[in-house]
Design a protein around this nucleic acid. Sequence first.
DNA 1: CGAAAGACCTGAGTGC
DNA 2: TGCACTCAGGTCTTTC
Length: 307
Amino acid sequence: MPELPEVEVVRSGLAPAVTGAVVAAVEVLDRRSLRRHDAASGDFETLLTGARVEAAVRRGKFLWLPLSGDERRGGRAVVGHLGMSGQMLLRTPDHPGDDRHARVRLHLEHPEHGELRVDFVDQRIFGSLAVDRLVPTTDGETGGFSDGVTGEWARQLPSQVAHIARDPLDPAFSERAFVAALAKRDTGVKRVLLDQGVVSGIGNIYADESLWAVRLHGEHPASSLSPRRVRELLAAVRDVLGKALAEGGTSFDAQYVNVNGASGYFEHSLNAYGRAGKPCPRCGTPMVREAFMNRGSHFCPRCQRRR
DNA sequence: CGAAAGACCTGAGTGC
DNA sequence: TGCACTCAGGTCTTTC
């Protein structure tokens, strides 16, 4: 459920608190949350303890904190993915540690803000944290979004994020490459929107919202769309993501929250997702939910014809 | 190589 | 009350 807007809310909340802080201690409460950490590169806690956080960067739904310190830590980052239910909660050191789903706790020491804690809380453990090495971007542009912070890590990204495409809000995102990618895909357009190797940051909610906005059925063959239609779709994606970000993201329950534990408001602005049986905001026809890739697709059977 | 299916997880909700 | 089942879903791995 955390898609680009929700992850960006977390990144922007984390950035001012953690940038410049030193990791004083690391507590791993559930090692399953380190699934994506390559133990061959070193122990997670050892690599992280003593390192200094240089920034908070995001590409699509991936979030990372470039590290500095001695030789072992420079050129690395702690990279996080929220999965379905992950949260990064900023807390004071004396906050009770009784969170049932707290998996990892980072104890930080900030030169100005003093001691603070980042709790990685994740009910379903689809999310993860890892210390990974940074690699240069292939196009020489910045690795991801980070409030315009510059430095040696600006044109780098974690090795495990290297195969993830840029997101539609990234200035270096290539519209031309996106049009070309859709043209050669032999599958439905929704599947391509969800393919993080083609365009990142979009999940089930914003895919359904974007397709509704341009009256496209998700099973419409991607390769049959004209370049003009693809650009319309991309504009809709950007519009939906931007509006959701402005409203602090979408949340249906307490699963998705910002670094202070608060929920966003975009749920009230949804036109398609989760609205099965309710009237289409455009034409009044009852919306439909269909099974799709072990989840649901929500659309208007009148506005969004299958081909 | 690309497309699709399966695995990974927990907890809320539903039907019997 | 309790048990079996379904649903939620992002990404990595496996299969074809």
